[in-house]
Simulated assay, not measured.
Amino acid sequence: MAAACARTLGKVGRLVLETPACRTANSYAVVPKITLNASRRAYGTGAGGFRSKPFFTTQLRSARVLGCAFLLGGGLGLYQTLKLTLERHLAEEEANTSGSSAGLKLTLYQYKTCPFCSKVRAFLDYHGLPYEIVEVNPVMRKEIKWSTYRKVPILMVNESVQLNDSSVIISTLKTLLVSREKTIPQVLDCYPEMKSVNDSGKEVTEFNNKYWIMVAGAEEEALYPEKGSRKEEIKWRRWADDWLVHLISPNVYRTAGEALSSFDYIVREGKFSTFEGFFAKYVGAGAMWLISKRLKNKHNLQNDVRLDLYKAVNDWVAAIGKQRKFMGGDEPNLADLAVFGVLRVMEGLQAFEDMMENTKVKPWYRRMEKATHHKEAQQ
């Protein structure tokens, strides 16, 4: 654009030089001045014969003024053009970085021990997307007081676009990674928010299509080369949210001792004041131990909830099979990342150790650790 403006300015200059006034002034430059010794004035011929006004000098000055006016106008035009071009370029850059996966500034509002937040972190780590973490105080939640959506995780994109719900966050970002021509608003339109009332009479928010990656045609074939792999991924992502995640609390709070150990871990890893930490560790542990009994009945779990955890994990391993490293094949897919994210929150607790010892999940889990850590190191 700047080069085009310079060319235009050059043409204006040439036009100025080709005006009659300029041609006369140029002719004057090669004709010797006629002077009278008595007056020492320059004279020119005009309609009235000899006259005392310096005609050629007047024409030359007029041409110079006209040329300067054109040059000044052209310079101002060039400045305005460059200014508008720069502003447009910056606007386009901002729109591109806000609308595609490149150059995104991501801020994750989370509880570290929340399985849904852990799912999002697993996705971001595996795909090498840099992000900042804001640990939310689970008591006051002042860190998200600006949001009408009062749950975590919340992912802020470029400090302007808010993504809610772990599965919507993952599906949105994956769509952007695969289809870079789409913008975030375009993708979010595919996951409409729906409000309903649950069996307890509480209003809940759900998102339609949240397990779908919004690609088709060649993009779909590249992402899901195996027949049925898309349906399989959706099935197990939903399973992780609807079943596996509900096995975590009954298992980590199974006994009073396990509940106390779990809350000790939660307080250490979370964001609590001294008083809140003490209260959460002892009062919260007792409360969750009692609540875990209700959860066991609510989800129709066995008396020994470990057995349900073992069965769920072995069902997952069986679905992967012996011929694949991951459900996604040689690389994890979104179902792998979801299940890994959910199970990871039990690390360091007795439930996790028992699961690793009494199921077939360990080889797959170690491969997932290596895959996510390897990608994270490349950020």
Rank of each mutant, 00 (worst) to 15 (best):
L260V: 15
M194F: 08
S101V: 15
T45K: 11
L176Y: 01
C5M: 08
A312E: 02
E206D: 07
A319G: 01
K375A: 05
K271M: 04
E143S: 07
T148A: 11
I248N: 04
Q80I: 12
C190H: 00
M156E: 02
S179V: 12
G44Y: 14
T58D: 10
L72G: 02
V120G: 03
M156F: 03
L301N: 01
G73N: 03
V139C: 04
T274W: 15
K174F: 01
M1E: 04
V178T: 07
E347C: 06
N251M: 06
V161H: 01
Y224G: 05
T183I: 12
W289V: 08
D336G: 03
T172G: 02
A240I: 09
K145C: 06
L9C: 11
N358G: 01
G348W: 05
M288E: 02
F278P: 01
A91P: 00
A377Q: 06
A240S: 07
N300I: 13
C190V: 15
V157C: 02
A319V: 11
F263V: 12
K360Y: 00
L290G: 01
Q302D: 03
T255K: 09
V168R: 03
E143N: 05
P54Q: 13
S196A: 11
I248E: 03
F352R: 04
I248S: 05
H299A: 05
G328L: 12
A216Y: 04
G277N: 09
K311T: 13
L295Y: 09
Q186I: 10
F275M: 11
K105V: 14
S249W: 12
F275L: 15
I248L: 14
R64H: 02
L76V: 14
S52R: 13
R64K: 08
F275K: 12
I184R: 01
F70N: 09
S273T: 15
G44V: 13
A4Y: 11
K145R: 07
E276N: 04
N96P: 00
L104H: 00
A312L: 11
E206C: 03
D242N: 07
W236E: 09
H127R: 10
K360V: 14
Y126M: 06
A29G: 06
L163N: 00
A63H: 08
A338W: 04
Q110T: 06
N158K: 06
A216L: 12
L309S: 06
S98V: 13
Q186C: 01
A95G: 00
A38N: 09
Q323K: 14
T255G: 03
Y365N: 10
S229Y: 10
F116W: 11
N209R: 12
H246S: 06
Y282H: 15
L247A: 00
R150G: 08
K370A: 12
D199Q: 12
L15R: 02
V16Y: 03
H299K: 07
T372Y: 05
Y253T: 10
V187Q: 05
R61D: 10
S200F: 05
P115D: 07
E93R: 13
F263D: 08
T81M: 11
